[in-house]
């Protein structure tokens, strides 16, 4: 890039920004909706076809190219830590995971790694979740469970309140793009488990979150570092009770939520679902509220620009 060009670009950008600020001050443009590319904060896509609604939801957000550059290394974190079949909703719908992986491949990702730290017998988790089976033909895509210590490395958590260091999956730390593809589910200890709680599948010592630290604060500490660039929540069906492993009540919602804001996406999933037989406010979930309070994302759903699609 030559000097001239960058100067020109700077001038252009400055003009755009000042115009936008001027517009905003006169109430012409909502600053949240503006921005150079004008993307919505979140998209919710309804429909019966899991793959299609996944794609539409990401498209509505500006498309996968917004998050995955050609040659990028992508880590996708679904839920596949239980030896349960897809209909039990303890793991992410493999169709949703595959569609995300396909989009990444189409965007030219050089390596797409689908990983989770399994809780049940590793081979059976892989087999029954069906995620490896569905994703094996997607180019450059590898599905693995992660258990061995050597896959993790220590990373400092500067904004941590419970801990200042943790061991996280090296591949996730090194990834150009980290995508969370959780299923919406209830959780016996965290209330619900979505994109943020799901990140615990990328760290080594989960037990200490439960035993040594406050679980909710720990989740928030963790996602200050393991912050997904894109969240795609599988709401094709949710595990309303009995989570995280089930068995429990499975409710079909036929939707997928996509957002670059993990807090907003999780909050939205809470608001759309029914949990333990009742409707819950996002702010009732301790770790979601804490994450918003600590500025990691937004919980004020009514103030967000949400694009809703039905297909």
């Amino acid at each position: 890039m030559s000097h001239d060009e960058s100067r020109r670009k700077f001038l252009k950008n400055s003009l755009v920004v000042s115009a936008a600020m001027a517009g905003a001050s006169f109430g012409l443009i909502d600053p949240l909706e503006a921005g150079a590319e004008d993307y919505p904060d979140m998209s919710i896509c309804n429909g019966k076809d899991a793959a299609l609604i996944t794609r539409q939801a990401v498209e509505a957000l500006g498309g996968i190219k917004r998050f995955v550059r050609p040659g990028a290394k992508v880590v996708i974190k679904p839920n596949m830590s239980f030896a349960r079949s897809p209909e039990t909703a303890a793991n992410t719908n493999p169709l949703v995971v595959r569609e995300v992986a396909r989009m990444c491949a189409e965007a030219g990702a050089s390596r797409i790694s689908i990983v989770d730290n399994v809780l049940n017998n590793p081979a059976d988790c892989m087999k029954l979740s069906k995620i490896p089976e569905y994703c094996k033909d997607v180019p450059n895509t590898h599905t693995n469970y992660i258990k061995n210590e050597r896959l993790f490395r220590e990373v400092s958590v500067e904004r941590g309140t419970q801990f200042k260091k943790m061991r996280a999956l090296s591949d996730a730390l090194d990834a150009d793009t980290l995508i969370a593809v959780p299923v919406g589910k209830s959780h016996g200890s965290a209330g619900v488990s979505m994109s943020m709680k799901g990140m615990m599948g990328l760290i080594y010592d989960r037990t200490s979150f439960h035993n040594r630290y406050d679980l909710h604060e720990s989740i928030v500490d963790m996602v200050t570092v393991l912050k997904p660039h894109l969240v795609v929540i599988d709401g094709t069906r949710i595990l309303s009770t009995g989570g995280p492993g089930g068995p429990g009540e499975v409710i079909p919602l036929d939707l997928v939520i996509a957002s670059a804001d993990m807090v907003a996406a999780d909050a939205q999933m809470v608001a759309l679902g029914k949990w333990y037989g009742k409707k819950l406010e996002p702010k009732q979930i301790k770790h979601i509220r804490m994450a918003a309070e600590r500025g990691l994302g937004r919980i004020d759903l009514d103030k967000l620009n949400i694009k809703k699609i039905s297909v």
Binding site: G188, S189, Q284, K286, H287
Partner: peptide, 10 residues
């Protein structure tokens, strides 16, 4: 038993 930990009353 009805609501797990991590869910606050309104």
């Amino acid at each position: 038993e009805q609501l797990p930990a991590g869910i606050l009353d309104e």
